[in-house]
């Protein structure tokens, strides 16, 4: 039950895009049509689901103060938490390489349309951000961390597909010249964010 609550919360209330603005760069750049947006969204969700449990294990058994106690008495006082950033990013970067190879093999058309943004998932703030939030929130088990990853990923997916659908329709409207392209996208994201705030206070 607690997991379900976390899942719903991370999709709608703590949404990566609307509440924390994580992963905005690719969000803005790859949201020109729904198909590509969906592809990137799925890739990000997958990355989150894979990298969060690994980073959780890493954090619990290696990095936290006293986490190395399982190695013996001498290691009980070791605090490696300052290394967290570099370890997390290393896990994420290598996982990205894996996803990239898989996408290239199974869906060359998606690979071509994602272009530069596939390797850049490694520097997508949503993924590192989720790992850092996971560290901050002190989840009880790897399962909870995975659920959090899945929820955040699906929230990101909903956001990017939504904005891509709006931008496709936007091609037919008369936007003031200086606002065309990126400006109006910012305003739309803001309005969507306000809409998403109506989910605030939902509890299961």
């Amino acid at each position: 039950m607690e997991e379900l609550n976390l899942f719903i919360r991370s999709i709608f209330i703590d949404n990566m895009i609307f509440a924390y603005f994580l992963g905005m760069c690719s969000f803005l750049a790859v949201s020109k049509n729904v198909k590509t947006a969906l592809g990137l969204g799925v890739a990000v969700t997958f990355m989150l689901v894979v990298s969060l449990p690994i980073n959780y294990m890493l954090n619990t058994y290696v990095l936290q103060p006293g986490a190395l106690a399982w190695l013996g008495e001498d290691f009980a006082n070791v605090d490696l938490s300052f290394l967290a950033l570099i370890m997390f990013i290393a896990v994420i970067a290598s996982m990205t390489q894996l996803v990239e190879m898989a996408v290239e093999k199974f869906s060359p058309s998606l690979y071509a349309s994602l272009g530069i943004f596939l390797p850049l998932i490694a520097v997508n703030c949503a993924i590192l951000g989720a790992s850092l939030f996971m560290q901050q929130k002190d989840f009880g088990s790897a399962l909870t961390a995975t659920v959090y990853g899945a929820g955040s990923g699906i929230g990101w997916l909903i956001a990017i597909v939504g904005i891509a659908a709006i931008r496709e329709k936007l091609a037919y409207s008369n936007v003031p010249k200086p606002l065309r392209g990126i400006g109006i996208t910012f305003i739309l994201t803001g309005l969507m964010g306000i809409a998403f705030m109506s989910f605030l206070g939902i509890k299961l």
Binding site: A19, F21, G190, M197
Partner: peptide
Amino acid sequence: LPPMALITVACIIW
């Protein structure tokens, strides 16, 4: 609130 940050940036871009 977060959404207004987006709209402020949009105004700067404008």
